[in-house]
């Protein structure tokens, strides 16, 4: 890997490098319980990667960002072949499903020796391929693919793990021209119409789990939300277009991580250089355009069509890898359970 530290300077005089707030992970204890029984009852020493479904939702409460959450339902139930439980989770607006993959090793040594750069690159290549083959228009959650490596020590009931949220690195990076609360960009009428359209999108079981969309505002200030596959038909009309996404981030100054691959997608697939994006955020579970942001970004189209971007995304806390260890002996060790019940 190259280690050239000099950040590319923005190509324009005004504007700054668009910086994205990292995605954060949270693992419910139930996930480890189900992984343990899966290991003990079904997988044995098989170390094949396991398909996961992570869940997230737009930011909804002041001062905290939302997470990518793993629950026991994130793991496939007994027969591994019938993976993805995405279907069963459709419609729960607080659980937008995101595809992920888990590499769980049998020993600590194997865990340490996993080729993390390579694993991350594999996921990034999938994202790139999904963009180039047009799969993203059909299923936009593919832009949010994530990766977990873990070592589940079932002798001590402890679990070590590390998350990655792969992001394609475009060079030069996108430039942020402006970023403001949506209410300051839109007219009152537009804002009201957009709020209503977002609430409708979020409350329909068909669309509640779709985190990327196109906002189209016509000359009568009426906003509609359209899926990405409607891009072609959106271009014909003279409407204002915004590229919307569920933003888990709470910061007023930065958009969240999901925008990153979305912009890359827009740039690689739709060849746009100037993008007006919409960070969709909520309060009390309803659209709130005071906390939602609208920004303008400039991106450069990559010259070579087969260009392979670099990838980043291992979860960090500060500058360190967010390597975590959780011990669940108290709630899982049969001996301890027996002792505490005696």
């Amino acid at each position: 890997m190259a280690s050239n530290p000099s950040p590319s300077s923005p190509s324009l005089n005004s504007g700054s490098v668009l910086q994205f707030d990292r995605f954060q992970s949270l693992v419910d204890v139930g996930f480890w319980h189900r992984l343990s029984s899966l290991k003990l009852e079904t997988l044995g020493i098989d170390q094949s990667p396991i398909t996961l479904v992570g869940f997230f939702a737009p930011h909804s409460r002041a001062q905290v960002s939302n997470h990518l959450t793993l629950l026991s339902e994130s793991l496939p139930t007994a027969p591994i072949e019938h993976a993805s439980s995405i279907e069963t989770n459709l419609g729960n607006r607080n659980r937008c499903p995101v595809p992920g993959i888990l590499y769980n090793t049998n020993t600590l040594e194997e865990f340490k020796e996993l080729d993390r750069d390579n694993l991350l690159q594999i996921e990034a290549n999938k994202i790139l391929e999904d963009i180039r083959l047009g799969k993203v228009e059909e299923d936009s959650t593919l832009l949010l693919r994530f990766l977990v490596i873990s070592y589940a020590d079932l002798k001590t009931w402890s679990f070590r793990y590390l998350f990655a949220f792969p992001a394609l690195v475009i060079d030069p990076p996108a430039t942020l021209m402006s970023l403001q609360p949506a209410t300051q960009i839109l007219t009152a009428e537009e804002a009201e119409s957009l709020s209503a359209a977002c609430n409708e999108w979020r409350s329909s079981s068909l669309t509640a789990g779709i985190p990327f969309f196109i906002v189209s505002i016509n000359s009568d200030s009426q906003a509609t939300l359209r899926p990405l596959k409607d891009w072609e038909s959106c271009q014909g009309d003279q409407n204002k277009l915004l590229f919307g996404f569920y933003d888990p981030c709470h910061l007023k100054t930065n958009p969240g991580w999901p925008l990153r691959n979305f912009l890359t997608f827009i740039c690689l697939r739709w060849k746009l250089q100037k993008v007006r994006f919409f960070c969709y955020r909520e309060r009390l579970g309803l659209a709130n355009l005071e906390v939602s942001l609208i920004g303008d970004a400039l991106i450069s189209i990559q010259k070579e069509p087969q260009y392979i971007p670099k990838v980043v995304g291992w979860e960090r806390i500060g500058n360190r890898l967010a390597l975590r260890c959780i011990s669940l002996a108290e709630s899982m060790d049969p001996q301890r359970l027996a002792a505490s019940a005696a």
């Binding site: 890997m1 190259a2 280690s3 050239n4 530290p5 950040p7 590319s8 490098v17 668009l18 910086q19 994205f20 707030d21 990292r22 993390r116 750069d117 992001a167 690195v169 990076p173 996108a174 910061l251 930065n254 990153r260 670099k310 980043v312 995304g313 291992w314 960090r316 500060g318 500058n319 890898l321």
Partner: peptide
Amino acid sequence: GNLVEPDDPATLRNQ
């Protein structure tokens, strides 16, 4: 392995 990453200019740091 990921030393390049802290220098990725598009990642917001110290959050």
